[in-house]
Amino acid sequence: MADLTLIETPEPLDPASPLAVRGLTVSYGEKPALFSLDAQFPVGAMSAIVGPNGAGKSTFLKAALGLIPKVSGEVSVFGRDADRMRDRIAYVPQRASVDWDFPTTALDVVLMGLFGQVGLWRRITGQHRAHARACLARVGMEDFADRQIGQLSGGQQQRIFLARALAQDADLFLLDEPFAGVDAATEAAIIGVLKSLKAEGRSVVAVHHDLSTVAEYFDHVLLVNLRRIAEGPVATTFTADTLAEAYGGRLGAVQIDALALQGG
């Protein structure tokens, strides 16, 4: 019995990190979507989650938030259980998940972001409305406050979702493909807001599908395809080798070289 070595209790996940996971496995049925994933995002930075379709990027965000059950692994948000940190996490889901004919105005949607403060009972006051309008102004949508959301363009809808997250005054922003299907003006407006969040010391983690803008927008990158392929600062991590490993044959060698050059 003497030669059995005791497995040490692992170090706790870094409490400074806004979002850290270890050994995260998530499965739909018996097919894992993520397998034993480790990741640790830096505080006060903009981080991208990059990988091919079906690599588990959105699944990662949902599992980190506890929206879908995990098979194994641990998730820590600022060193604590994500369930207890809900007010400090703002989540912007994919735009497609909503019924756009729902009877609600842009301002109402942003007010939903105040749910944590208003709760079940308290009245929505003029102060709450003023705060919501200020969030709309921050994404350039103050003139659209009273529009029913179905009357807005795709880019404008995405900005409303971002304003709802802003209203929450969170420290960690999780965005699922915020630039999917939006116009150039909206992309510029959203990235401007995200950079201002970073300047305020908040952390942003976004699932991102456009490889050509990773180096321009983000500081930190997690390349994922079922497992973690690579993670670290964009400058050193977003390379031809890691891209080839994450995307396999799906990206041509020429494409990869061009992207990695931009990043390097």
Partner: peptide, 22 residues
């Protein structure tokens, strides 16, 4: 009347509601 806010939130955007702890 008591449940109007969570019920509206869940009807409109269940993923967001769940992320908010509903």
């Amino acid at each position: 009347w008591l449940l109007r806010r969570p019920m509206t939130l869940v009807a409109f955007d269940p993923a967001f509601a769940a992320a908010r702890g509903v």
